[in-house]
Design a protein around this nucleic acid. Structure first.
Lengths: 187, 187
DNA sequence: TGCGGTCGGTTCGGTAGCGAACGAATCGAG
DNA sequence: CTCGATTCGTTCGCTACCGAACCGACCGCA
């Protein structure tokens, strides 16, 4: 036998799904998962924490790209890149990729489109001709200086359901997750 | 004048960047941002919370795709889709997309590759020939039943730096962010 | 001075992801 | 019935993103 519900006995959970608020729904899910796995011990706390991290990130990113960023045609990655260059000054590709949390290959593409839009420029390094530094153009500086305060306001809206202490708590908890997840897979 | 550092006065922050741990680095960034924006009020708490959400999500996703999921050639979205189908039973495309937090168009592609791997199948709905339901195959059921406990263990590792209470706190704070961010842009 | 190893950036092949446009199927007002 | 409006899934064009392969440039050792 397998565990797939046929159309008829599928009706029950589907109705529950469509009606109820997030919290109850997840309790339903927990019950259903336990049914399917039987006795094996599961870690629902970790599951919820991880899946909410991912859900929150995509929600936050979507809102940014459809709101503040859309007018300038910037992606999340593009904005991050501008922001990093603005804060830290010109950087060479590898460091920039690292700082933006992107692979080198991806960064090449992002920089290419930012170049097309006139926000950044590539500068050859005379001392080492393998290297290239990326820097904001004047237009890029003007753009990020105009954009960042708006973006920051938007960030405020995204976490407006939290008190200041809660924002700090959230950031700290996530920081610990980041450290764990970014560690070498040395286990 | 613009704010770009030239290569020489760029040396100082760059060195700081390369040396120090995450927390101090961000304090440096705060100082630099304030320099660039002058008197305008900024919301660093929100900024840190939001950017950590995003960083944590990509870190967590990368680890999953390079670890547990890589052996089966599943992406995060592919795994999520299998999981949802397993828990809730067969669903039609739109509901599945909604549940997986993907656009309809994206889901079509994900289902297509899952179909190629033999994990799911499309079933026409006789009552309404526009519709299609997606369901796990037997191979798909076997796969997710094998995979999910491993995935859940991996989730546990990702948040192993947190106590149970902290995991719950994290999930709850994120839940509130999700609700805010997912709301209609009605403002 | 030359040559193998390494290093930095780009390219490439692939999937993921989005919104918009599309086309077939259904529904509904008359 | 019929024809316009709606709904459902797919397709399309685009960017993002990754890892691996690649290539020119640099470096160290002889």
């Amino acid at each position: 036998m397998n565990h797939q519900a046929d159309p008829s006995d599928n009706a029950a959970p589907r109705d529950a799904r469509e009606r109820s608020a997030p919290a109850p729904r997840l309790l339903d899910a927990e019950r259903l998962i336990e049914e399917r796995l039987g006795d094996r011990p599961l870690d629902f706390d970790s599951m919820l924490a991880v899946s909410n991290i991912y859900r929150a990130a995509t929600a936050v990113r979507r809102r940014a790209e459809q709101g503040v960023l859309s007018e300038l045609g910037l992606s999340w990655g593009g904005f991050t890149t501008l922001w990093v260059l603005w804060v830290w000054g010109q950087m060479q590709t590898a460091d920039l990729a690292d700082e933006c949390d992107l692979s080198k290959g991806t960064l090449t593409g992002v920089v290419k489109t930012l170049e097309k839009r006139g926000f950044v420029e590539r500068r050859p390094v005379e001392a080492d001709r393998r290297r290239v530094t990326v820097a904001l153009t004047d237009a890029g500086v003007a753009t990020i200086e105009k954009l960042f305060p708006r973006f920051n306001r938007y960030e405020g809206q995204m976490v407006s359901a939290l008190t200041t202490a809660e924002k700090q708590e959230l950031a700290e908890l996530l920081r610990r997750v980041i450290v764990t997840a970014a560690k070498r897979p040395s286990e």
